[in-house]
Design a protein around this nucleic acid. Sequence first.
DNA 1: TTGTAATTTTGTAACGATTTCAAAATTGAA
DNA 2: TTCAATTTTGAAATCGTTACAAAATTACAA
Lengths: 139, 139
Amino acid sequence: MKTIEKYLINSGIKPSYQRIRILSYLMDKKNHPTVEMIHKELLHDIPTLSKTTVYNTLKQFVEKGITQIINIEDHKTRYDADISTHGHFKCLNCNKIYDFRFDNKSLEISDIEDFDFLQTHLYIKGICKKCKYLLNNKN
Amino acid sequence: MKTIEKYLINSGIKPSYQRIRILSYLMDKKNHPTVEMIHKELLHDIPTLSKTTVYNTLKQFVEKGITQIINIEDHKTRYDADISTHGHFKCLNCNKIYDFRFDNKSLEISDIEDFDFLQTHLYIKGICKKCKYLLNNKN
DNA sequence: TTGTAATTTTGTAACGATTTCAAAATTGAA
DNA sequence: TTCAATTTTGAAATCGTTACAAAATTACAA
């Protein structure tokens, strides 16, 4: 049995063909896709794949804790199978989303000392290195 | 002329009645409202107020940099007239959104060293102090 | 292997937040 | 006061997402 099937079973999810393919897509591409992107891409291989299945599957992945939601865009949800604590940078020029690491421990927070933290989401927007270079040299 | 009118003019926005009222609402309540909340509330005083006006106005406020978008919810946009760098905590029990301060300087970030940072959004989700207390004592 | 129940997938319709757009109302300058 | 420019309004359209019931698939007992 493939690793990914074991991973699904260990997470309490029956490894149906669609679920395996959707999780594989997330893990291989690491591109923080929208539902639209996943559906469009997998439709090439699974012509009957319904968008509802993609929604249901991702919802289940999030509930079981093997996928996290990224709300860096204004109106559409993106998904990430990397559930480790890390940040997301969105380039406002090329719209690419980059992963980055940050030290959660060093984060100095005031005002909410006695609160229980369950999830930390850090989103930074700006201009990525590539675009910075391109923009500087296009005169 | 009122301070808020001056503030709008200085930001390049003509201080119409609706704009003044919407900005006042944001500044007075500090409650990170949705469009729905602003519209519903102001409708008491301005019965003709259209939801489109609220949308248009907030879009303009964001473009002119006097309001920031908060994407801590999955599907609806919240707005904040406090444009200083600060974080938002959402209690998963009572759904209240709290402001908190954090030290941007102390944040240790890797992998995106040469990127230009324009906006930093820090969202933490968990259980607030009040709910923690209530949940612990309800047996 | 067959029959049946449970689960999963599918497609359509509905929903809610947001945007588009043109008409109506208001404002500002001549 | 007049006319053009700006702002507001409300209806329709759009887009992402959810609800739901039927169809397909899977699991399992007989």
